[in-house]
Amino acid sequence: MSTADICRISGLKRTTLAQQLVRGKVAETTVVSISRALGLNPAESLANFSTFADLTRLAQPPTPAELVSQVATMDLLQAVITRSAADPKDGSGTLRALSPAPHATSVRNWVDAIDDGELRHRVSAATGVAPQNYSAQLTANRLSPELAVATSRAGGVGLTGGLVATGLITEAEAGWPVDARQSALDALSDGELVALAGERLQALGKTLRRQEQEQAQTEKIWENLG
């Protein structure tokens, strides 16, 4: 199969792939796209590269905390409302399907879910990435695949969790059971669920307030200088 064929079936731009091949550095996203196009499991394909060699070998199921971290905030709130319905079997209380991972704050929520308080230091020590750069990536809701795997290692959890949280591979590709997130969500006690939803709302409120302040500042600049 030629490079052109690969680009055609995977939807990659030919120039992009050619450039990556010339430089001898192929992006993880490229490997994932090609694997999907060829009907291969992206996680297994990534495992062919040394950085990700133990990706599938050390596969272990995600922890309940990791699973719940990949439930979108609005789905958590939905669960709170559903549970608070007087009669759980009432029509309005029927569960709707969870939106697929990743969600708007999935990366930070995932790291928080596996963080024992020292995780960031261990990741930083293992990879040489400065803590503030790491935090900046979390705030932007992203994490390079290498760092995601390093974080999993440092957290002692399955190596695919971070790749799901960053959206590089899907839950199914990572080998998560179809209803794993829903089951983990259902297993939360009311107290745990409400406390978690509260934390998420608080974080969301902070983000929105900051955005609103930035917006107000921008408006003021443009009012005077636009």
């Binding site: 993880e28 950085t51 990743p102 999935s106 390079s144 969301l204």
Partner: peptide
């Protein structure tokens, strides 16, 4: 609450 698309993932290279 927009979920990140593929393009948001840092294109770190192998």
């Amino acid at each position: 609450h927009r979920a990140p698309g593929q393009e948001n993932i840092a294109a770190e290279e192998l």
